[in-house]
Structures are given as C-alpha cells and as structure tokens.
Nucleic acid binder design. Structure first.
Lengths: 269, 269
DNA sequence: AAATTACGTTCCGAATAATGGAACTTTTCA
DNA sequence: TGAAAAGTTCCATTATTCGGAACGTAATTT
C-alpha cells in the first residue's frame, strides 16, 4: 500500500490486496482518505471493481458500521471506527505511562507537547498536551507524518543502528514541505549524526512553516519500540535558544518515561 | 452484538457473525474491549474457533495493521485504526461546523462542552472542549454511552416522535450507574416529556456521581441525524441554578449549529 | 408525458478464499 | 533433559466472494 499519498488525491483504488479483509480495508482507507463523502458512482469510477462487487463490499462495510451511507447515497467513515480507536487509545499502556510526564513537560515549557511512535518511516502521534495559548497546528492524535521532517521522527530514527536506519530511510520520497525540509538521505543522515551526539533533535520549520520543536527519543529495552517526546511551538515565540534550554528537560522526560515503562511493564522488553 | 458490556468482562467471543468481515471485526472488537493485551491462548480459550482458524484470522488482522502483536505474542489494537479514525474525525463536516460554537459555549460557561450524536439508543461523543480547570471525567471523543442517562442522549431522544422513541428505548437494560440513574422506560418517558416542554435536558449525576450537565438537541432538517450539545461540570461547582442559567445559551448554540448546517450542507437534509 | 439515460440493486454459476483437523516446530517449566 | 504447553503450518473440504448480466428506479431529455 502506497502511503504518503497526500499529494495523490486522484489516486485510483486498485491496490491488489490479498484476501477479503485486505480488499475491504483498502476500500475503507480509500473512502476515509477522500476529501468528502463519496457517492457510489464516484467510488466506482475510481475503482477497478465491477458494479456488483463494489456494491456488495460497501454494503458489508456499512453493515459492520465501518462506513455509513446517508439518504443521498453518500458514503463516509462510520462512527464505529472512532469508538474502537478511542477505546484502545484510552487503554494504551504506553500512552498512559507517558501522560503525566507529558503534562509536566507542558507546564514547565508552556508549549504543546507531543508523544509519537515510529512505524516504519512514519511517526504516529499518540498524544498531545496543548498549552493555553496554543497556536492551531496541523497535528493531532493519530496523525501520521514522515519521520524525516519531524522532531519526534528524527529522534526516534537516531537510536537505530546504521544498517536499519539506512533500510528505513531509503526509497522514500523526500517531499519538501517547507524550504527547510531535509531533501535527501544524506542530509538526513548528517542531521541524525548530530542528534546522536547531543541526544536530542530539532525541527526548525521542516514540516510546517513557522513551527519549531525539540524532541528526545524513547526506546523500549529490547529496542523494538521506538518513540519520542517533543515540545513544539510557533517560531516567533519558540526561539532556538529556548529550544536549546528546554532540551535537557525533554531528555529527562523521555528517560523518565523509559524508566516507568521498565517498572510497569517488566524489564525484559 | 451486545454493547454496554462493561460488566461482561469474561464475555466469550462467539458472536455468530455473518460473512468474513463480520467475523474479523467481531474478533477485533473483542480484542479491543479486553482489559489488556491478550496472548493467543487467552483469545483461543474465549473463542469457539479452532486453533488454525483463529491463528489465521489474527494474522490477517495483524497484516492489515488492525492488530499488533509484540514479541511476547500479545495482541493489541493496532495504530492503523487510530490513524484512520483521526483522519475521518478531522474531516467530519458536522463536527467542523459545530466546533466554533462549542468553543464559544465553553468560553461563556467556563465548563466542559460536549458534542454527541445519537446512534440507536447510544450517544457517541464527537467532540469535547475542556475548560482550564476541568475535573477529569470519564468521557472522551469516540466514547459511546447509553442515551438514557446522559444529557445529550436524552435531549436527542426528546425530538423523536412517540412511536420511534418507544421503539428505541424498549428492550434496554437500565443499568443504575448511580443512585440518580433513571431505572425504567416510564421514568425516562416522564423526563423526556419535561425536556420536550422546556427544550433542554438535565443530567443530574445520572451517569457519573458528582457530574451534572445541561444539554440541547440538534437535528438535521430531515430529522434523520440526531445530536446534542451539553455543558458539563462537577456538581460542587455546577449547581442547578447555574445549569438553569446556562440553558438558553446551550439552546442557542444548538440552534446555531443547526442553522450553519442548513447553510453549509444544503437545506433539504 | 413519453422516452431515454444514468444510477443503484439483486441474482447466480464460476472462481476464490476460509475452514478446521492434524501434523509439525518452538517455547516453557519441572 | 524430558515432557507438556504454546504457537505455526499444511491441505482437502466447505463456504464465501466474484462479476457479468438482468432488473428496478429515479433523474434528465425530447
């Protein structure tokens, strides 16, 4: 499945998925990614399925509450997905362990704090604690962003060994979100070697113009779970000096989360 | 599928769902509802599936990112669900239209504001705007609660005609969450007739001890989408007088949301 | 208003995927 | 180390999905 397809609005839905579930989830994804609710024909024209097949697939998804269809025949994502996701989010151990530390970090800095985990070459934000006077950012819980242009992502990548790092960041499309976005593996590798040296990462308007952050890595004992914490704010308020000053705090928060994980989830993980 | 099964911890997973998708989603739901991550054998013992079948089903769910399995063989909900849900939440028209009104209401009252939609006899919370000094409540976006014991739920029910109302609230289990929870259809109907008369609903510690709210209904022009807005807070701070005083504001917010829907989504809906 | 077209739904033989018992491998524990 | 439990793979059987075509219905045109 081709991810990172925020550009590919008119992407056709013809992933050749294996298995019944794969096809249906891919269809679900397709409807979820669309700009708005789609009518049957809209989906059909972007799909390689015959009418009958598509109709039955959509019906099944609706039957399970994964999709909803209004009286105008427009399909959109169903609320069951939201319920399912929220329940699992609330019970997520890692998030729960990290939460108090995120709040503490938020209070100390006054800016927005993020918790994200690395999945492949993407960061998925697991939690977010906003400051009072927070500027609206294009970020939210559950949002997936490329690792190479986010503080949390680069921090998490930095703890990988060279072999796996190279594997993960090769074959990516280095989309220039801003003029500061890193544009190649070599630029990323060079940044990461700095991150390794100092123990924390910066994002200086690399993902979104006017937004900066400082982030520190978190990893489970077995090294199989990679994550990061960050403090983020608007560039006019969050100068590089302030980021620098916060860095030790962010690292302490990350380390505390790791300690708590060790204690609460058993050591050999 | 029996919802509201917070009591049914040891519920077996043997819904006889129809179709491949139904079985898999039911399994997904089962794992999501569990108290914590489950190992293969745990699921097997609570399932009526043969080992081979269950193993393959779980593998398929993992393959699609709907479940994740750690090195100890423990299954939990995958992050893909969170990503999918968050994306659709962000793009939800209704939520987006309501958002500014929710914030305004929050600022006026200083307390937490909820937006919820009615699905059957349950309310699913679509959005929540917290006050600064907010007490942690058992409520969150995506959470599903029985309509009969929540302000939003009762408000939404109140705009139904008697026939559909009776149909929806019959056959429910009236679980007494607190000593103030309504315990029967007749109690609910009597409350609802009052709500109809005054145009807004109260929840006086009916769902959670120490939590009160006032709520007003929202419905689309065709009456097929029922929802509600509420202002919620701790009983020691939120007296019945204050609720009463806020009621007109809540009703105005609800009506404004309806107006905006009419304008933004076309009238005949 | 009648005819036409587009849209959505249902049907059923053929093709495909899921089932589940058993054999097999790996891990755990005494 | 041996034995039991846990987890995985295999494959003939069974059930489900596929998809073309026929059918009904609403929107549009003449």
């Amino acid at each position: 499945m081709g991810l990172g397809s925020e550009a590919g609005k008119n992407k056709r839905h013809r992933d050749r998925e294996t298995g019944t579930l794969g096809k249906l989830v891919s269809l679900l994804d397709f409807v979820a990614l669309a700009d708005g609710p789609m009518r049957f024909t809209d989906i059909l024209s972007l799909s390689d399925q015959p009418r009958g097949t598509l109709h039955r697939q959509l019906s099944h998804l609706v039957e399970e509450g994964l999709l909803e269809v209004d009286r105008d025949g427009r399909y959109r994502i169903g609320l069951r997905l939201l319920t399912l996701a929220s329940r699992s989010w609330a019970r997520n151990e890692f998030r729960a362990i990290a939460e108090p530390h995120l709040h503490r970090l938020q209070e100390v800095t006054g800016e927005t704090v993020h918790l994200g985990v690395l999945r492949g070459a993407e960061v998925i934000y697991l939690d977010k604690v906003e400051g009072q006077q927070s500027v609206r950012m294009y970020s939210q819980v559950g949002n997936a962003s490329p690792a190479y242009c986010t503080g949390v992502g680069k921090a998490a990548l930095s703890v990988l060994d060279d072999a796996e790092l190279t594997e993960r960041i090769s074959g990516l499309e280095y989309r220039p979100y801003t003029e500061h976005t890193l544009r190649s593996p070599s630029e990323l590798l060079s940044d990461i070697s700095q991150i390794r040296a100092r123990g924390y990462a910066f994002d200086l308007e690399e993902h979104e113009n006017g937004i900066c952050c400082v982030a520190a890595p978190i990893r489970s004992d077995d090294g199989h779970m990679l994550a990061g914490v960050s403090v983020t704010g608007p560039a006019y308020r969050v100068t590089q000096q302030r980021l620098q000053a916060w860095a030790p705090r962010v690292v302490v928060a990350a380390d505390s989360i790791m300690m708590d994980m060790r204690n609460r989830m058993g050591p050999k993980r």
